[in-house]
Simulated scan of single mutants.
Amino acid sequence: MAPPSPPVTAEERAVIARQLGRPPRALVGVAHRCPCGQPDVVETSPRLEDGTPFPTLYYLTCPRATAAASRLESAGRMREWQEELGRDPELAAAYLAAHESFLATRDARDVLPTRATAGGMPDRVKCLHALAGHALAAGPGVNPIGDRAVAEMGEWWAAGPCAQPSPTDPEDVR
């Protein structure tokens, strides 16, 4: 189970808002940093501020990482990996273990009224964004499909930080 993310600073919140193009919701912490140093995955509360269940614990924020995951989805990788889950019992067992790890981490934060999943786990490959976010936050070897997605997403950080400081954001003016 992943330890709780450290609290989010005002500067990180501003970067995440620029990445998303809106203020983040139910933000708990930065779960992973891109090699460029900026957040690329955040941890969200299992409930939104109004109490609505929000089962996606880890959320990709970097627009370049999000675009890379979208390209994999468009290329049919979800379908291919879904088919492989049905043929490969070792992959299916590792994916089930990833699901249990995800639920244990989320349930330690707050237990939702249903056992909703992320990314379709444990039976489906439904959202590479959620699976890649989980893989980045949990580290290599926890989510085999998420690890594959991250590996195939390429070096989304290679062009430098995706969210440049904005002179209109008070946190960014120095």
Rank of each mutant, 00 (worst) to 15 (best):
P140R: 15
A69L: 03
L128E: 00
A26T: 03
A159D: 14
L136T: 08
V125H: 01
T105G: 04
P170Q: 04
T105M: 03
P7G: 05
R77K: 08
T44H: 09
G133S: 11
A93P: 01
R148T: 12
A10Q: 08
M153S: 15
P63R: 09
L131H: 06
E12Y: 12
C62F: 13
R106S: 07
P165N: 10
D88H: 07
C36F: 01
P161K: 12
T52L: 08
P24V: 05
L103Q: 14
R18Y: 10
L112M: 14
A65L: 13
A2L: 13
G133Q: 09
A130N: 10
G139R: 07
T61W: 04
P35A: 11
A26Y: 01
V125N: 02
T105K: 10
M78R: 14
A116I: 02
P35Y: 06
P23Y: 02
L48A: 11
V111I: 10
A151C: 10
V41M: 02
M78Y: 00
R109N: 01
M153C: 15
E49K: 11
G29Q: 03
M121K: 06
V111C: 04
A135K: 09
G21K: 10
G133K: 03
Q38S: 08
G160T: 08
R174E: 09
A94M: 06
H32T: 02
A68N: 05
P165G: 11
F54I: 00
E49R: 14
G76M: 09
R64E: 11
D123V: 06
A118C: 14
Q38T: 03
V173W: 13
D110G: 01
E155S: 13
E80K: 06
A104L: 03
P6E: 12
K126V: 01
D147I: 05
M153E: 09
R64Y: 08
L103F: 04
G154E: 07
A151I: 11
E84F: 01
P4L: 13
W157T: 11
V173I: 14
E73K: 05
T9P: 12
H99D: 04
A116K: 11
A130L: 13
P23E: 15
T9L: 12
L112G: 10
C62I: 14
S74K: 13
E73W: 01
G139H: 06
P63D: 10
A69T: 12
R47T: 13
E155L: 08
T66N: 09
P63E: 11
R124T: 15
D147G: 02
H99I: 00
S5A: 15
G133V: 08
R174C: 00
G146T: 06
R124V: 12
E152L: 15
F102P: 02
Q82F: 09
T168D: 11
V8A: 11
P55N: 07
A68R: 01
R47D: 00
P55R: 02
G29Y: 04
W81S: 07
S101C: 05
L57R: 14
